[in-house]
């Protein structure tokens, strides 16, 4: 085992758990680093952070982070995290999971947590397919692209995740890629300060699956394709930023939304206070 003792962020990782499970060229290592970077900059003590995930490659991130971590069932990270947050509102609870976990099987929980403006930060690593099970298509797979279960090309439209989160009422919405680590760290740190529901979509490659099925030599080439076709537009019209890179549409990135809406925890606190006074 390599010692990470001299790594500047070694206190945030579980050294004994390395090497990690991810493929060469995967973006999840960068996402892990970015999350840790934001935790360090957040000013919130390490032990007040809690990290929750569902199932999938991304959902393995918490296992490497040295804090209270929860690797739950497929699609159910958000309601699990909701339970933790309500039971102890002083914690900074982050959900980190993949697109399949959060938006296919777990879609119902996402829309309701965002509608409630539940005080959670949800980070979705979007690699456009189910990586762990071999690259089948899902609700984020771009039109006409290939996957293990769309050999003739995908005929389904894909979710536009920032638009969805905004429409549902999220307080904070952003989209970055793992090729934008500085912006990503800043975005996660900002999102940690938000009261209410914060959502960040992070585009990430899937070297053995989505990259391979769609003609990229490796993960880096896939990411370079998005990066060179991307533009940063913080003021973008969100209904116009669906991801469709194979038809010449640029990938729009940015910190799109940061607005003040009453959060669930704030309102629940008031409700409890009022009902405790009323019952006396």
């Amino acid at each position: 085992m390599t010692s990470l003792e001299f790594h500047p962020k070694h206190q945030y990782v579980r050294e004994e758990r390395f090497p990690h499970v991810w493929c060469p060229g995967c973006g999840l290592g960068i996402l892990l680093q970015s999350y840790i970077g934001a935790v360090e900059k957040s000013g919130i003590p390490q032990d007040n952070h809690v990290l929750v995930s569902g199932i999938g490659c991304t959902a393995r991130i918490p296992g490497y982070v040295n804090m209270d971590t929860y690797h739950t069932t497929h699609g159910r990270a958000i309601p699990f995290a909701t339970g933790i947050k309500l039971a102890n509102p002083d914690l900074k609870v982050t959900v980190i999971s993949g697109d399949g976990d959060l938006f296919n099987i777990g879609g119902n929980h996402f829309i309701h947590a965002a509608r409630r403006n539940m005080d959670l930060l949800v980070i979705c690593s979007n690699n456009f397919n189910y990586g762990m099970t071999g690259g089948q298509h899902g609700a984020t797979t771009p039109p006409t692209s290939k996957s293990a279960s769309t050999p003739y090309g995908n005929i389904e439209p894909a979710f536009n995740l920032p638009h969805l989160a905004y429409a549902l009422g999220a307080s904070y919405v952003a989209r970055w890629t793992v090729m934008h680590p500085r912006q990503l760290v800043k975005s996660i740190k900002t999102a940690m300060e938000v009261k209410g529901f914060a959502f960040i979509e992070v585009l990430s490659p899937c070297p053995p699956n989505f990259a391979k099925f769609n003609g990229f030599a490796d993960g880096f080439e896939e990411m370079e394709f998005y990066r060179s076709n991307s533009i940063v537009r913080n003021e973008a019209k969100l209904d116009d930023i669906s991801i469709d890179p194979f038809h010449g549409k640029p990938v729009v990135l940015g910190d799109f939304v940061n607005r003040k809406r009453a959060s669930y925890v704030t309102l629940e606190r008031e409700l409890i206070k009022k009902s405790m006074e009323g019952s006396r």
Binding site: V52, Y70, T72, T73, R76, I78, P79, F80, A81, T82, G83, I84, L86, A87, N88, L91, N108, H109, H112
Partner: peptide, 12 residues
């Protein structure tokens, strides 16, 4: 979601 939430809350 209900079942996930009560398992979460119990862990907290």
């Amino acid at each position: 979601g209900s079942m996930a939430a009560i398992v979460g809350a119990s862990n907290a």
